[in-house]
């Protein structure tokens, strides 16, 4: 909850907008629980939500530990880890370049 509110503060263009968003998050503004927009974005981000939920559990760590217990798994991890990190770096860079996220958010302060 604290993280959600603090990110609204970071992202808002001014105090008024921040208050309006936070108010809406707590039921002010007479907004419906769901709308065409919420359903659309929930469906669109379903894979991201699933990845986030799974990533928040010990499951990925358990899988990696299991893999590294045998030689073949360890060898596989030695290859996959740097590849995954480089791919992630490139994808994150691609998101920054596309401008959908503001990389200089903190310069507002």
């Amino acid at each position: 909850m604290i993280i959600m509110i603090s990110f609204v503060l970071f992202n808002a263009q001014g105090i008024g907008e921040a208050v309006s968003y936070i108010g809406a998050m707590f039921g002010a503004g007479d907004l419906a629980f769901t709308s065409a927009e919420t359903i659309y974005y929930f469906r669109s981000y379903l894979v991201v939500f699933a990845a986030a939920v799974i990533g928040a559990t010990p499951l990925p760590k358990t899988l990696v530990c299991r893999l590294s217990e045998n030689k073949a798994g360890k060898w596989l991890l030695d290859i996959l880890e740097p590849v995954a990190l480089v791919v992630l770096l490139l994808v994150v860079t691609a998101y920054l370049v596309d401008g959908s996220f503001n990389p200089f958010l903190y310069f507002r302060f």
């Binding site: 659309y40 469906r43 991201v48 490139l90 994808v91």
Partner: peptide
């Protein structure tokens, strides 16, 4: 990079737009 982002959005994350 824009192409990579678009491919990730549609092909990997299955987003609609």
């Amino acid at each position: 990079f824009r192409r990579l982002k678009a491919e990730t959005v549609f092909g990997v994350l299955g987003q609609k737009d």
